[in-house]
């Protein structure tokens, strides 16, 4: 389990990793630990897979991928794992999940493809469909992005409504 201090460190690393000579020392000052202690905890998060890696996210990275489709599949229960794994093995599939169904909504496997055109998305879906032998699927194209952000882990307000900006 993560302690309060771990949560603080994670918040710091996620939202305001310092651009300075000794970033872990600065984080240490903020949370009340030594540089060595912070650095060794970060190495531990990496080892445990909690932290995938450090890095920067840039603006405008998806330029060129104009069509993004979510492909929704209806897969027989006993084939979900196999189909999910097989879909995930395709390079053009960027995300793939098994999700619970809902009343009137029998679809249970979801994957994403990003392409230059819609036709390319349809082609990809046909190829995937043939490969996994599932014919019951459809594509959902996004037409507008309303929010796209990284999660603010352990945010004090994550259980609540944030500030609604009116107007």
């Amino acid at each position: 389990m993560l302690s309060e201090i771990d949560k603080q460190i994670i918040r710091e690393i996620q939202s305001r990793f310092p651009i300075t000579e000794r970033p872990f020392a600065v984080i240490g000052e903020r949370v009340g630990l030594s540089e060595e202690e912070v650095f060794s905890r970060v190495q531990q998060y990496l080892k445990e897979g909690k932290l995938k890696r450090l890095g920067a996210a840039l603006k405008h990275q998806r330029v060129g991928y104009l069509a993004n489709a979510m492909i929704v599949w209806r897969v027989p229960e006993d084939r979900i794992d196999q189909v999910g794994e097989q879909l995930a093995s395709f390079e053009e599939v960027t995300h793939c999940y098994h999700r619970a169904t809902a009343p009137g909504w029998p679809f249970n496997v979801y994957c994403m493809v990003h392409k230059h055109t819609r036709e390319e998305c349809y082609e990809a879906a046909r190829r995937l469909s043939e490969a996994v032998g599932i014919k019951d699927y459809f594509l959902l194209f996004s037409t507008r992005e309303l929010k796209r952000t990284s999660m603010s882990y352990f945010h004090p307000k994550e259980k609540e409504k944030g500030d609604v900006q009116l107007g």
Partner: peptide, 24 residues
């Protein structure tokens, strides 16, 4: 519709980072 994730087969890290990462 509430469609909770049961199992994650793939999250592409490159898209993760550029997006944000962390679609569930």
């Amino acid at each position: 519709l509430n469609l909770p994730a049961q199992r994650m087969f793939k999250v592409n890290v490159h898209f993760e980072v550029t997006e944000v990462q962390d679609a569930e």
